[in-house]
Structures are given as structure tokens and as C-alpha cells.
Design a protein around this nucleic acid. Structure first.
Length: 573
RNA sequence: CGGGGUGUAGCUCAGCCUGGUAGAGCACUUGCUUCGGGAGCAAGGGGCCGGAGGUUCAAAUCCUCUCACCCCGACCA
């Protein structure tokens, strides 16, 4: 491709609307343009990258035995009413009405459509298992689209749905998809982790997210320093502390702590380590208000708490007025001593002795408090978020001695074992060996294709621009002539090189613009083309051409006649 | 949906407080010079100052309403 015939719409200044690096660089490099909030046009340069990601995904899905289909983007309301999601889904579902006043939605996902298709087409266990996928634009009316295509409303997604005769078959396909996803992200060239995840609103039993590790990621994940354990912080188990609770030492005492509410304030005021304090949170329970008690330096994991049978879901904190009623004080002074409501303590909190907590009197705290002696023994559960340095909870046979660190991740893939949630509601059944109707267990597997592009940039950039992995670069190679319009010798040589390299299967961008070299270099760096050849008259006279990898610091001089050979060594097609 | 902010040239922004002929840099067009890391000079083109009402002799500027976009929060496959 010649730049003179290619829409290379680079921008020197950083657009004000872009906050994250990937969003800024995608706009500056001329990959995308915004049409409306969360809705983007892919320009030629960006589309080349998107198509490459798509190609890798398609190849690996095919290799894993999945069959490609293409379902409608617009779906009739009836199907969603049948699964019950027409009412459940809420405003994120873009609803439409046609000229006959029939209700439709723009599909945010396709469980209903595929289940409807399969219940009509598949009738025998002999046709199972079967896995169908598509790569298609989805629309979810996000409350707050942001970060460009990272969290867009319209986005390209690969979604796959598998159907089975039993749970064992589902597990098998699930593992295949797990492997295929790992292969996909490896081929794209990203640092990623499969992460045990909460199944959330989509339902089902088992689920893994695939995260690209990047500091700008929106999700917190806990990963082990030694083993492959990785879990969403919402799900990561906090192991109970080692050893037994120490025996009570000193007698309990009440101290005035005027105006000291937060753990930070109280621990500073009383000169104690936050680890030696308790924080008490009051939430709505199924039978009235419940106290959740954590160690001062820990945070409540709301997902874990909401799963407790005593707690109403979703988790609701009580109002200051209700705190007053239940504890007899302001929210900053609650403690478990003398509370007449059920107390659920985190394992770490339950292990403390001689600790500090609120006195249930505004402006007062207790010191040297002990469970059993001063406060009733609590119900003990794991309700906190894991923190840096917690021991790895890996449950596998070999005891892992690693510690967890909290990293940020960008969710680029998610696989679920759905079970029979949709097939049951929509009566998707087949006949088994015995001629009995069986509801098919299902799996579903998503990859945010457009998000992968943004995630790749988050992980691969420098001050000059993007650093594409070879696998998804828009072009393999930039050919930069110095003085293309001035020097016939340079022009003829570079044109010949362009033809040869293109012939050899490389995707080459020849910058034949009448621009100053500085402009060309800046653009080639910004767009992130991984390999660059520069030819000027001086080099040509010596029969030499300059080569530089986008990540290299130094330029290398190569003999002209060795170019093809060297590029073949450097660039994997 | 709550809180905060911004809408002026293709882009980044100044002008608004204190009303009086709409600006800069970059980009674009033309010419000359320049030509190995975002050139210089000169001459140009380009605006319903987001939209609608109002106040005023006069509104980008003041007032009211509205729309869009951005940030924080809640929410989230």
C-alpha cells in the first residue's frame, strides 16, 4: 500500500476527550473516529488491525472444532420474553419498534437466538456436542461508555455457544475453549491470565475471565507469585490466618475518641496499628439488621457478603438513622460489644485479641477488647477482599506457598458453563440413547475483539506511539524513501523493493508522500509498524539500506541485495 | 440517575468576569526557499461562537430553557 493512496489520518495533538493511552493513540494514529458516545468508525488503518485479531480468533475457533454462523443483530422481543430476559435486562438493552409496532432489540448477546435455532435443528444426541460461533457487532447501551473502543456501546465480539448431552461433555468443551483462548491471546502476543470469576447475572456455574494485564485495567485480579492461580478479587478466597487466637491480656477499657470516625483517624488518635482494630458495618439482613466485622486494614468483599444466607441481596448498607436504632450511636463508633443483632466476623477479625473497636457510644472506643470475654463469639466467615501479600489459596493437591499480588486487568474474554438456564426456559431438548427427552446443558464463550485491539495498545506503547506485536500490526513493514520525489534512483530502487517485498507476501506500507523525513518517521512510529526500512541517496550509493525494528534503539545497515532474506528472518508471516 | 465541567475554524485552545467589527497555534490551498526526526517566509481559504428564547441601541460575552460531549460516583457482558 502506498501512503499517497491510503487514508493515513494521523493527528499531532492529543484529542482532549481521550483519557487512556490506547484511546489517545488510536485517535492519533487514525485508527478510529467517534461518531457518537461509545460508537466508532474504524478507519482503514484500524480496521486492518481489527481484522487480524478476528482472523486469529476465527482460526483458533475453527481449529477447536467450532462452526461459524452469523446471526441477526436485530432480534424479536418474543425470544427474550421466552427466556425471561426481556424484563430482566434493563436499560442496557437497546429496544426498537418496527413499523408494525412489533418489539425488537439490538442484540447485546445471542443465547436466545442460538437456542431457538438449535432446538429446531438438533434432535439427536448423535449430533452433540456442537459449538457455534460468530464474530459480529453487538450493542449494549452502557451507562457510561469510556476509553474509546475499550468500553464502547457498539463493539465487535466473538461469541460462541455449545450444546451437550450431559455435564461431562460440557466440561470437556469448556476445557477446549479454555485452551483455545489461551492459544488466541498467546498468538496475539499479549501478557494475559485466565482468572476464576463470578458468573454474575448471566447465570451458570463455572466461569473464567481472560485478562490482559495492564495498569489501566478496570478489574482488580489476584495472581499468585508461584503457581498459575489467578482470581478476580471479588472471588479470591482469603485463607484463615495461621495459629490460634491469643488469650486475652489486659482488661477492657473505654476511651474518649471525640470526632474520630474512620479507622485511619482512630488508629492514629490511639496510636495503634489498624491491624489491631475492628471495623463494624451494618447491612440489611433477611431477619433485620446484621453486623459485618472486619479487621481495620481490610475491606469488605461485597460479593462474598451478598452470598451469605443471612444477608439480603443485593447488599444494602443501613442508613445512619438505622445505625442509631440498632447500635445506639453514630456510624463511626460501632463495635460488636453488647450488640443485640447477629454479628458475622471475617476470619482475620475473629482471630484478634486485645483489639480496638467502637463502643456503640458516639465519640467513644474500646481498647483491649476480646471475643468471648467482652463480646459474644461471632459467626466466622470469609467476607473480606484479599490484599497484596495474602497467602495463595490454590486448592490443588500440591500446597502452594506463594503469595498473592493484586494486579489490574482488562477483561478480553469470558467463558461460562451456563448449564440449562436457557435450554430449560426455551425447551431445547434432544433424544438420548434411550429415546428420552434431555434438556441440553450449554456453554457460552465470548471474546471482545475490538477490546483486544485497545488492550494490545495499553500493553505495547512508548512515548512515540504504538508498538504492535507482529501478529496484529496493520502492516509488517514500512518502506521509507528519503527524497522519493527528488531522486529517480531512490524512487526506482524503493519501488522495486516494494514490489519484491509485496510479492514475497509482506504487507508493506510505502511512504511515497512528499513529506519531510521527520514527518514520515513520526507517523511510522505513531502507527506502530513493527519494521522499518529507510533508503536515501547516500545509502543507495553504497548499496546499503537502513533497517530498524520499532522496538530497537539502534539502526542497522544492510546490503540492499540481502533485504528479502533478512526480512524473512525477522518477520514471521 | 447524582455531583462537577466543557461546547468558539478540521484539531488544541484564547476571548466571556467588565456587552461594542471573531482570534492564535497546528492543519489545509498557492508560491519561493528548505529537505535524515513533526521546516522558514509570504499570500490565501475556512465560523449562524452547540440550539431556542429573552434582556439590550448592541450578545460569543448577561439571563432562562434545551441538546451534546467529558470527568467522578453508582452500575456493568
Amino acid at each position: 500500500m502506498r501512503v499517497s493512496r491510503f487514508l493515513l489520518s494521523t493527528v499531532r495533538e492529543t484529542p482532549a476527550e481521550a483519557e487512556t493511552i490506547s484511546h489517545q493513540l488510536m485517535l492519533r494514529a487514525g485508527m478510529i473516529r467517534k461518531l457518537a458516545a461509545g460508537i466508532y468508525t474504524w478507519l482503514p488503518l484500524g480496521l486492518r488491525v481489527l481484522r487480524k485479531v478476528e482472523k486469529i480468533v476465527r482460526e483458533e475457533m475453527n481449529r477447536a472444532g467450532a462452526q461459524e454462523v452469523l446471526m441477526p443483530a436485530i432480534q424479536p422481543a418474543e425470544l427474550w420474553q421466552e427466556s425471561g430476559r426481556w424484563d430482566q435486562y434493563g436499560p442496557e438493552l437497546l429496544r426498537l419498534t418496527d413499523r408494525h409496532k412489533r418489539d425488537f432489540c439490538f442484540g447485546p448477546t445471542h443465547e436466545e437466538v442460538i437456542t431457538d435455532l438449535i432446538r429446531r435443528e438438533i434432535k439427536s444426541y448423535r449430533q452433540l456436542p456442537a459449538n457455534f460461533y460468530q464474530i459480529q457487532m453487538k450493542f449494549r447501551d452502557e451507562i457510561r461508555p469510556r476509553f474509546g473502543v475499550m468500553r464502547a456501546r457498539e463493539f465487535l465480539m466473538k461469541d460462541a455457544y455449545s450444546f451437550h448431552i450431559d455435564a461431562a461433555s460440557l466440561e470437556e468443551t469448556y476445557q477446549q475453549m479454555h485452551a483455545a483462548y489461551s492459544q488466541i491471546f498467546q498468538r496475539v502476543g499479549l501478557e494475559f491470565r485466565p482468572v476464576a470469576a463470578d458468573t454474575g447475572s448471566i447465570g451458570g456455574s463455572k466461569s473464567h475471565e481472560f485478562h490482559v494485564l495492564a495498569d489501566s485495567g478496570e478489574d482488580a485480579i489476584a495472581i499468585c507469585s508461584k503457581c498459575q492461580y489467578a482470581a478476580n478479587v471479588e472471588l479470591a478466597q482469603a485463607l484463615p490466618p495461621m495459629g490460634k487466637r491469643a488469650a486475652p491480656g489486659k482488661p477492657m477499657q473505654t476511651l474518649d475518641t471525640p470526632g474520630q470516625h474512620s479507622i485511619e483517624q482512630v488508629s492514629k488518635f490511639l496510636k495503634v496499628d489498624p491491624k489491631q482494630t475492628l471495623k463494624t458495618l451494618l447491612v440489611k439482613g433477611t431477619g433485620g439488621v446484621i453486623a459485618l466485622v472486619l479487621r481495620g486494614d481490610h475491606e469488605l468483599n461485597e460479593i462474598k457478603a451478598a452470598k451469605l444466607p443471612q444477608v439480603v441481596k443485593p447488599l444494602v448498607f443501613v442508613t445512619p438513622g438505622e445505625v442509631e436504632l440498632a447500635a445506639g450511636c453514630e456510624p463511626g463508633s460501632i463495635g460488636p460489644v453488647g450488640l443485640k443483632i447477629p454479628v458475622i466476623a471475617d476470619e482475620s477479625a475473629a482471630r484478634l485479641a486485645d483489639f480496638v473497636c467502637g463502643a456503640n457510644v458516639s465519640g467513644k472506643h474500646l481498647i483491649n477488647v476480646n471475643w468471648g470475654r467482652d463480646a459474644a463469639e461471632p459467626i466466622v466467615m470469609d467476607i473480606r477482599k484479599v490484599v497484596d501479600g495474602d497467602p495463595c489459596p490454590d486448592a490443588s493437591a500440591s500446597q502452594c506457598s506463594g503469595v498473592l499480588s493484586i494486579r489490574r486487568g482488562i477483561e478480553v474474554g469470558h467463558i461460562f458453563q451456563l448449564g440449562t438456564k436457557y435450554s430449560e426456559a426455551m425447551q431445547a431438548t434432544v433424544l438420548d440413547e434411550a429415546g428420552q427427552n434431555v434438556v441440553m446443558p450449554m456453554g457460552c464463550y465470548g471474546i471482545g475483539v475490538s477490546r483486544v485491539v485497545a488492550a494490545a495498545i495499553e500493553q505495547n506503547h512508548d512515548t512515540n506511539g504504538i508498538l504492535w506485536p507482529d501478529s496484529i500490526a496493520p502492516f509488517h513493514l514500512a518502506l521509507v524513501p528519503i527524497g522519493y520525489r527528488k531522486s529517480a534512483a531512490v524512487r526506482e530502487t524503493i519501488d522495486r523493493l516494494y514490489a519484491e517485498l509485496t510479492q514475497a507476501g509482506f504487507e508493506v506500507l510505502l511512504d511515497d508522500r512528499d513529506e519531510r523525513p521527520g514527518v514520515i518517521f513520526a507517523d511510522m512510529d505513531l502507527t506502530g509498524i513493527p519494521h522499518r526500512l529507510v533508503l536515501g541517496e547516500k545509502g543507495l550509493a553504497k548499496g546499503m539500506i537502513e533497517y530498524k525494528g520499532r522496538r530497537d534503539k539502534q539502526v542497522r545497515e544492510l546490503p540492499l541485495e540481502k533485504i528479502l532474506e533478512t526480512m524473512r528472518e525477522n518477520i514471521k508471516l
